[in-house]
Amino acid sequence: MLFSSVITSTPHVCLPKVTRPALRRTIRCSAASVSPGFDLKTYWTSLIKEIDQKLDEAIPVKYPQQIYEAMRYSVLAKGAKRAPPVMCVAACEIFGGNRLAAFPTACALEMVHSASLIHDDLPCMDDDPSRRGQPSNHTVFGVDMAILAGDALFPLGFRHIVSHTPTDLVPHTRLLRVIAEIARAVGSTGMAAGQFLDLEGGPNAVDLVQEKKFGEMGQCSAVCGGLLAGASDDEIEHLRKYGRAVGILYEVVDDIRETKLQPDEKDKSKSKGKSYVSVYGVEKAMEVAEDLRSQAKKELESLEKYGDKVLPLYSFVDYAADRYFGFEELV
């Protein structure tokens, strides 16, 4: 689902400048030009190292060993961008939240994200043989073990939030809202609904498929960070719309890049699902991507009173659209 692609050194693909004047006026300059001192790559890679360590500690191998090995195989896969947890931490820090308060929820987001990917890759779903540059979980451990690994990761994420979040930093009332938000995002009206529509819906379902399969985790990640730090209801709504736009933007750009880099290959499987590229073509998908970039940045305008703390979220938008660096050294 959301942010699921492996980070590789594929050629740089930029979105073209759309000529619609009304759209271009709403797009803010990139965070790099707002603050030349902010380095998104350094910020992101530093957080990845911390999150990877905490995920490794959060999923020790126990009995039954094979289930834990299958869980660790997907969660600790090399090359994962850790976009959901990084976005959660960044959103928490905007409102003065302590990074230590966000890490348990950040890890939980990666757990449920990985669980959703394990299940999406199954032969009865998207039937994907690979994920993040390596064989899919069911390809290595078998369908039965992959289902169990995903089933185990969902509740482990919720348990990790409850058992590891410092109660002196985050009141229980906020934790309850975080847990409810994640449950909503992955449930029958969230990502599960998106997968259903991808399997059963017609071409006109593409907007809902993209919103539910890819937008839900983006908005959940941003919202959880805000909830942990005590953001106001109005600020939470801006984070929700921002995260949704960024989540879909990632996927739309992934589809565009894949099509441009492999223009002669036909879609040979159902795993491509219902994307803007497959339904409307590349040009329309590019317009959708530029609209999403504009929407995401517009939602951040209401948070500008927090100054430079908003720069990571601004930078995520431009990275989602332009992919102007890679993380090859982490693969």
Rank of each mutant, 00 (worst) to 15 (best):
K213D: 06
V206W: 10
L197P: 00
G273S: 02
A183R: 01
D198V: 07
D255G: 03
L199K: 04
L228V: 09
K274Y: 00
E181A: 11
K213T: 01
G187A: 09
V178N: 11
E181H: 00
V279C: 07
C220R: 05
N204F: 15
R177M: 14
F196Y: 07
P166Y: 13
Q262N: 14
P171R: 08
Q219T: 13
V277A: 10
L199C: 05
E200G: 01
E237T: 01
L239C: 14
E258W: 08
Q195H: 05
A245M: 02
G247W: 00
G273D: 04
A205P: 03
K274G: 06
F196N: 01
Q262V: 05
G243E: 00
E211K: 10
D234V: 15
R244I: 00
V186T: 09
A245G: 00
A180V: 08
H238D: 08
Y276C: 03
H238F: 13
D234Q: 14
A180N: 10
G226P: 13
L227Q: 07
D207Y: 03
S232Y: 12
T173F: 15
D255N: 10
L249R: 02
L199A: 09
E216Y: 05
S278Y: 04
I179S: 03
T259Q: 12
T173Q: 14
G187V: 09
V246H: 00
K272R: 15
A222L: 12
E200A: 15
T259C: 14
E237D: 15
Q219P: 05
V246P: 10
G247V: 00
H238P: 05
A222Q: 02
A231Y: 02
L228H: 03
K213F: 08
L169K: 11
E216C: 15
L169M: 12
Y276S: 04
E237N: 12
D264Q: 07
A222P: 11
T165Y: 14
E235N: 12
Y276W: 11
Q195C: 07
D255I: 08
R184E: 11
V277C: 03
V279W: 05
V223E: 13
E211S: 13
S269L: 08
L169R: 04
L208Y: 07
K270G: 06
P203H: 11
V209E: 04
C220V: 11
I256H: 01
H172A: 13
E200I: 08
G202N: 14
I256N: 00
I236M: 15
V209H: 10
E216M: 15
A285W: 03
G201C: 08
C220E: 01
A185S: 14
K241A: 08
V282G: 02
S188V: 07
T165G: 09
R174C: 10
L169Y: 07
M191L: 15
H238L: 14
D264V: 01
V252M: 05
A222N: 02
E237G: 11
E283K: 04
A192T: 10
R177N: 12
K212T: 00
K212C: 05
A193Q: 10
I236G: 04
A185N: 01
T173Y: 11
D168T: 09
A231Q: 06
K212A: 02
M217F: 12
A245R: 00
